[in-house]
Each structure stands twice: as structure tokens, then as C-alpha cells.
Design a binder for these strands. Structure first.
Length: 191
DNA sequence: TCGCTGATCATCT
DNA sequence: GATGATCAGCGAA
């Protein structure tokens, strides 16, 4: 059950999320194991988390701290309610557009660092909640076909419950993952 | 590089 | 009425 979403999370590293002109190659993700996971929004079934109980490969977008949008990919069969939070990526096309949306001066490799920044670079907000990622006419996912990159696992970020499980995965030594998360203190085992 | 703080509101209790 | 799956800017070391 949980291993299922963990495997999916790892398969997302190196995959691309495409939104119009902007395309992002994912470098950092975090898994949430549905109703079994106290840190998941689906731990309790509410109107907000209902989308996660639906079919996989749809977007779950939520508003955070009254300021930011964050992007998840729903995983698992209907009723499973697992999801993977997209924490960081590298913009591989549409850099000008991504930079315009960010409105902050940062190096290219940092344009989509952090879940809220990733969403902003892709122009994702609440309007996109529930988007079917297999429909190539809109925001969609291009799953990695090549070999798996070198992956490091560590504890999840910014949560108060069940933060100890190493369900955050990132591409080893990738500059689009923030220095804090790459620091020796936060570093987990290479998977 | 590290640690703290303000911004700001949808969602849930 | 309280609480965040956050970010950027600031000052200190």
C-alpha cells in the first residue's frame, strides 16, 4: 500500500510536468499515504481531500498559509487517497515565461525550487485542482522512460506529525533542490 | 549560512 | 477561532 505510492514518487523524479510553454523536470517529491498517514490531508476525509479519494493521475492543488499554492499528484486506485507533493524541479523549457510568473530574481535552476515556487512557475493555482494529467491538451505529466536517477531519501518537511518517515525523495546533488535539504544534517540514505 | 518574522486566508474544529 | 505539506527578506554570526 504505502510502498506503492513510494515507488510512484520515485518514478516521478526525472519525469516532466508540462503546462503550456513551461515544462519542469521533477527533482524533489514527497509521498503521502492517504488515510493511514497522519500527515496527509486525506487522514480525515473532508470536502478538500475528496479529490484524493478519486482516480489517480489527477492534480490536487491546495492553498497554503494564505499565500501559496501547492501541487500534488493523486495516486492509487479510487478510495486509496495517496498523493505525491511536488516539491522542486528544474525548468527545461519556457524559462522566460516561468521567470515572468515568479517575479523574483533567482538563478534558472532555482525557478521551481520549493512546492509553492514550482506551482507558480507552472502557473498552477486552485483553478487547476482536479486536472486530469493524462490529457495532453492541458497540464499533463510525461513519465520518465529512461533510467532512474541517483535518489536520496530523507524526512518530510514542514509537517508536525509523522515527520520521521523518510518519504521525501530527491535527485542527488541536483542544484534545483535547496541547500538546506541537501545539507548533511537533513541528509538521508541514498536509495 | 542560519534563524526569525510577517504576510494572509481556506479549511477544519 | 486556530492552524498550517511556505516564501522572501532581514539581521546576526
Amino acid at each position: 500500500m504505502s510502498g506503492d505510492v513510494l515507488g510512484f514518487a520515485r518514478s516521478l523524479l526525472g519525469s516532466r510536468l508540462v503546462s503550456g510553454a513551461v515544462s519542469v523536470e521533477l527533482t524533489e517529491v514527497e509521498a503521502y499515504a492517504g488515510p493511514l498517514d497522519p500527515a496527509s490531508h486525506a487522514f480525515t476525509r473532508t470536502p478538500r481531500s475528496e479529490i484524493m479519494f478519486g482516480p489517480p493521475l489527477h492534480l490536487y492543488v491546495y492553498f497554503s498559509y494564505g499565500v501559496h499554492w501547492c501541487t500534488n499528484v493523486v495516486w492509487g486506485d479510487e478510495g486509496t487517497a495517496s498523493a505525491v507533493l511536488l516539491r522542486a524541479g528544474r525548468v527545461v523549457s519556457g524559462i522566460d515565461e516561468a521567470r515572468r510568473r515568479r517575479g523574483v530574481e533567482v538563478p534558472n535552476e532555482r525557478l521551481a525550487t520549493g512546492p509553492a515556487n514550482l506551482a507558480k512557475a507552472l502557473g498552477i493555482d486552485g483553478e487547476d485542482n482536479g486536472t486530469d494529467l493524462t490529457d495532453e491538451k492541458g497540464i499533463h505529466l510525461e513519465l520518465r522512460t529512461g533510467p532512474e536517477p541517483v535518489i536520496v531519501a530523507g524526512p518530510r518537511v514542514g509537517i508536525s506529525r509523522a515527520a520521521d518517515v523518510p518519504w521525501r525523495f530527491w535527485v542527488d546533488a541536483d542544484p534545483s533542490v535547496s541547500a538546506y535539504k541537501r545539507s548533511p544534517r537533513a541528509q538521508g540514505p541514498i536509495v
